[in-house]
Design a binder for these strands. Structure first.
Lengths: 172, 172
DNA sequence: TTAAAAACATACGCTACCGTATTTTATTGG
DNA sequence: CCAATAAAATACGGTAGCGTATGTTTTTAA
């Protein structure tokens, strides 16, 4: 079966999730796809173009669509946080770690995370919390999410339910 | 002036903080230290031994000493969080990112973070919060810290004071 | 002072990548 | 069917890094 450009991108993203951005190498992907590396250059000018394409692909498939569906579905704050904390995080943490090495990725991540934060902030407002505090609380929830994503695989002592409970309870 | 083993370790950690673990290369460090790479092998058997030594060094100098001093100095929760959020984080984030690529580093980080968490939990208890909730709140604060460490450089919209305020206020 | 040891420099072979050039095989439209 | 195009394979030269071997300088200790 003939490969497509998208096959290379998916293989790159899979490798990113499994091994990190530094293992996203043309020859390694070619081995995984059981094809010669020569054909890679039919679909991409160079290694960088693959990386760019991977980020584009992820941005559309893993983020924009999710934010949209959350805005539509009218989910509760608790539900949104539970969904966020429970989704498969391997790809996501791969992207975040990648951003630590690539300023272009880092920049695009800021846009995405600000979207996510304002999404959460709206749900805090729905619970009757004022505008300013809603944003602060959304930022806190988001940072907790990033921290959890970073550490939950290595340290199993973090209880999602407890975190969500604390993040969604009012302060006195 | 003659170099020491510690000079190589410090250079390695500096490179880790500045460029990440993947740029901690023998020949790159030799260039930085303005010395030939041949002499590296006088102090270390191989590249891995340098990495091991770097982790040892960091564990002693950046963590054990800090935890000790905090336990002694009888600081408040707010003070501890402020100090944690304000310290230079470049080295720390370098280590955490490194852990994503190296299971040995990841494992040692679990011990360290559990120490830190129980340290924070004790301060929550001092404020009159019961044992179980203190630990949950300490975990929340810790995850927020990790998330903030990961993102604050790229996204300046996170306000430390607001985060500390939310983390230290009681819930109703 | 001088021989041994430590520190440092140089040169080498090896591997894993990159990107290019060239050739071979498949696919497709006229 | 058969050119023309696309896809894939092969072969090449180049770079960066590893670890070893070997040679040179510097330091140390008897």
């Amino acid at each position: 079966m003939q490969l497509t450009r998208e096959d290379w991108i998916k293989a790159g993203l899979q490798q990113l999730a499994d091994e990190g951005i530094h293992k996203v190498r043309i020859e390694a992907l070619a081995r995984l796809l059981k094809i010669s590396k020569g054909s890679f250059y039919h679909y991409f000018r160079d290694h960088q173009e693959l990386l760019d394409s991977m980020l584009d692909y992820w941005e559309v498939h893993a983020t924009k669509l999710i934010v949209q569906s959350m805005e539509q579905q009218d989910a509760s704050l608790e539900q949104l946080l539970q969904i966020s904390f429970n989704r498969d995080k391997k790809m996501e943490i791969g992207i975040y770690t990648w951003a630590k090495y690539d300023p272009v990725v880092a920049e695009r991540l800021v846009d995405i995370e600000e979207q996510r934060i304002s999404c959460v902030a709206k749900l805090y407002q729905k619970k009757g919390i004022n505008n300013a505090e809603s944003i602060d609380r959304a930022r806190l929830a988001y940072l907790t999410y990033v921290g959890w994503m970073t550490r939950f695989e290595e340290n199993p002592n973090f209880d999602i339910d407890k975190m969500v409970e604390l993040l969604t309870s009012f302060s006195g």
